[in-house]
Nucleic acid binder design. Structure first.
Lengths: 248, 248
DNA sequence: CGTCGTCGTTGACCTGGATCAAAGGCAGAA
DNA sequence: TTCTGCCTTTGATCCAGGTCAACGACGACG
């Protein structure tokens, strides 16, 4: 049982480059980001309390139990959210992709840890300053509520997966989720790209790496998918995978 | 694999009794309810768009995929939230107790079904009317965000449980959760009361009823707990159970 | 006060996925 | 170039928890 490696503390953020009123320009790629909850003319207010940063793989963005001082918008890369048991068993509760949001917390503390899987660029907001903005821009708060509701719905899907699906069903659901979230269709021209390792897939699905590997080779033998590379997947028979996943 | 029984549609709500400005008086029992997010003088506005109702066991409050037209505050009884796979496998994603809230939804639709386990009394709000109130009372919206953040944290705990805990650890976590949520300490004088059946416990923990039953008898033989009745549990060795649960 | 249906318990057995072990592939370091 | 370390795959074996089956307790209902 591997305890996760420690990493260095977060580097101090660089100030947003001058002349760039919205360092979070990339946020607009997905519907869930904070930036597009505001009108164009109000964006500078948001930009003023945010700073853009880039970190390397394995960098920890937030640790379970930390004071929830910051909110994050991921603009590039992939992040994993996870919880640990005292003996090191790990459950990944979600992956974040560009445009996704991080930082909702109950009782002022993060309930999970977040670690960069790839090189990650994000936009960080000071929570206390944001709280003041919330008073001025109720739209922002409504957006946060929408984000939370979405995350809740995904969490419930994941509970169904973890509690009641078989290994094959879990993998099928995972691949379809990745296709949906990453925007890659999984055709031979645009295969799915998996930024995470088998260990991380296993920790997300409540399985072991061996089972993940075995099911993937099963799928390959059954012509449900092809793997031009370890981290590239072509969904050959999407309908069959969708049937397996059970409409989630 | 049992497909869940159909139940009759919800009865039409009775109007709140005259002279009772706040039919949701019981809401104040827990910190998460809607009512106590408002000042005393604003409560009538909230009461005006709500109605109190009581339903029998097995009554369905909301069904997965329904238009999310209502929000609910549970004032008495126990409700289960669940999701189904096409073949009838069920995952219970949570239980609601008095003071708990129901109705957050993404994309205007409920992502889960909710069914009364016991006789249940609740207070129902019209979502569209509530949306108008939200503009006037930002406090309400902040409360909703707080509720959502809390639910999210609980969902993540549950993912850790479902994905990575053993049957014994799951049962220990469940019993401690029930003690915390119900406010019953689990002493011989005030034993834990379980309103749900073994099937429902199993569907919550991702187990079978047989395993739930076996682990409970194990615990009894190990003097970790006593069962003065099928649905009453005395936690004899809380520290041992907490160790098993893994500090959640 | 039997009969029926539901719920919980227990035993016997089975199996999906975990565990243990070995080996190949690949990237970065020397 | 070889070496070293990590990741992945594959095979052999094991076991926690599932499945199947029988039975007892209890409440509702005639």
């Amino acid at each position: 049982m591997k305890i996760h490696r420690l990493t260095s503390p977060l580097p101090e953020p660089k100030p947003a480059p001058p002349g760039n009123d919205n360092p979070c320009a990339a946020c607009n790629v997905r519907v869930l980001s904070l930036c597009d909850a505001l009108d164009e003319q109000d964006l500078p207010r948001l930009a003023a309390i945010s700073s853009s940063m880039t970190v390397r793989p394995h960098q920890i963005l937030v640790a379970e139990g930390d004071n929830a001082d910051y909110l994050f918008n991921i603009t590039d890369g992939t992040v994993k959210l996870y919880k640990l048991l005292p003996d090191g068993r790990q459950q990944i509760t979600g992956f974040l992709f560009p445009g996704d949001f991080l930082g909702l917390a109950a009782a002022g503390r993060y309930a999970y840890s977040a670690e960069a899987i790839t090189k990650v660029t994000f936009c960080r907001f000071d929570r206390r300053k944001l709280d003041k903005l919330l008073d001025d821009f109720p739209k922002l708060e409504r957006r946060l509520l929408g984000i939370a509701s979405n995350e809740l719905a995904e969490a419930q899907d994941q509970m169904l997966l973890l509690g009641r699906k078989t290994a094959r069903e879990k993998l099928a659901s995972f691949l379809l989720m990745m296709a949906r979230r990453s925007g890659l269709p999984g055709t031979p021209e645009q295969p799915l790209e998996l930024p995470m390792t088998r260990t991380e897939i296993a920790d997300y699905l409540g399985l072991t790496i061996e089972t993940v590997s075995r099911v993937l080779t099963q799928f390959r033998k059954e012509r449900l998918l092809a793997m031009p590379a370890l981290d590239r997947i072509v969904l050959l028979d999407r309908p069959a995978l969708e049937r397996l996943a059970g409409t989630v």
